[in-house]
Each structure stands twice: as C-alpha cells, then as structure tokens.
C-alpha cells in the first residue's frame, strides 16, 4: 500500500450523504465481532426464516441491493431483537463469553465453559438452542473431552 493512500491522509473520503428519502430507516446492529460471534447461533436459530427469505431474494434478483431492502430490514430487526433479549436476560454470561473470545483469538473451542453458561441461560430465557447442522457424533460444544488444543 502506498504511503500516500487516502486513508493515511488527514482527510476522510467516506461519503457522508444520508440515505435517500423514501427508504425506511432501520437501526443498525452496531455490535462488534466478538458479541456477534457469541450470539451467532441464536441469531441463526430465531431469524432463520428471515435470513432464508433475504438470501433467496438476493439470489433471485439481478440487482439484489436495491430489490431486497425490505427483507434486509427484517433481518436486521430480528438480529437486534435477539441481541437485545440476550443482553437483557443474560448480560453477565454474555459478557463473560465475549471477554473470553476477545482474549482467546475468537476461537470458540477455547471458551467452552463460558459458552455452556450462556447456552443454558439463553435456553432458559429465550428458548433458543445452539445447533450445529450435520454434526459428526456429539456436537463439539457439548463434548467433555478435548482432544486437540
């Protein structure tokens, strides 16, 4: 990357123009990668119909960005609802898992203890379960013995 790259200049070249009129606004998620990774399976569990609908709309359309805004807003709202519910009911366990992920290079297999507490709490309050599709044998997040580090 050249040293006079735009990002290194004392300018910002982000387009600050707001969203055009007529497109309904939706709050953005705004979470960083560790909380998103932590709650990803619960987002997948609750928002599966919305996610599938959105991705199907995208794959069918030639201009998916313009055509699937409605489905995309539903996806974002659903994800926000999951995040809000988890932070409302299971803030401590979520924070423990997120901190662990941040300190362990975002590797899920290094944070099984915190994840177990979070999964239990989410199952209790939100009735959402982490399911890894097509798992071989016992799912990895439920195994007691860890063979590789």
């Amino acid at each position: 990357m050249p040293s006079n790259h735009l990002n290194t200049l004392p300018y910002y070249v982000v387009d600050p123009t707001p969203m055009p009129e007529g497109i309904p606004s939706v709050p953005e998620v705004g979470a960083t990668s560790a909380p998103l990774l932590s709650v990803s399976y619960f987002i997948g569990a609750r928002c599966k119909p919305y996610n599938n609908n959105f991705m199907l709309c995208r794959s069918k359309s030639k201009t998916p960005e313009q055509d699937c805004l409605y489905e995309g807003r539903r996806v974002t709202r659903c994800a926000i609802s999951v995040l809000e519910d988890i932070t409302k009911n299971c803030e401590e366990t979520l924070k423990a898992h997120v901190d662990c992920l941040e300190n362990r290079n975002h590797e899920l297999d290094k944070c099984r203890l915190q994840e177990a507490f979070l999964n239990k709490c989410v199952k209790k309050f939100l009735n959402l379960e982490k399911v890894i599709p097509d798992a071989e044998g016992i799912p990895v997040h439920l195994r007691n013995v860890k063979l590789v580090d």
Binding site: T17, M19, I23, L36, N51, C68, G72, L108
Partner: peptide, 27 residues
C-alpha cells in the same frame, strides 16, 4: 468440527452483514 462450527457461526451472521452492506451500497 471446530472449523465447521466457525463456518456455521459465520453463515448465521452472513444475511445480517449483507443487509447492512446493501443499505450502504444503496445510499
């Protein structure tokens, strides 16, 4: 299995990230 777990976590987040990127594209 670890890498599959990570891949499915990413797949669950993909529509959410894509929706946000699409809105930014339209803007």
């Amino acid at each position: 299995e670890y890498s599959r777990e990570k891949a499915w976590a990413r797949l669950s987040l993909l529509p959410l990230l894509q929706a946000e990127a699409d809105r930014d594209y339209v803007r």
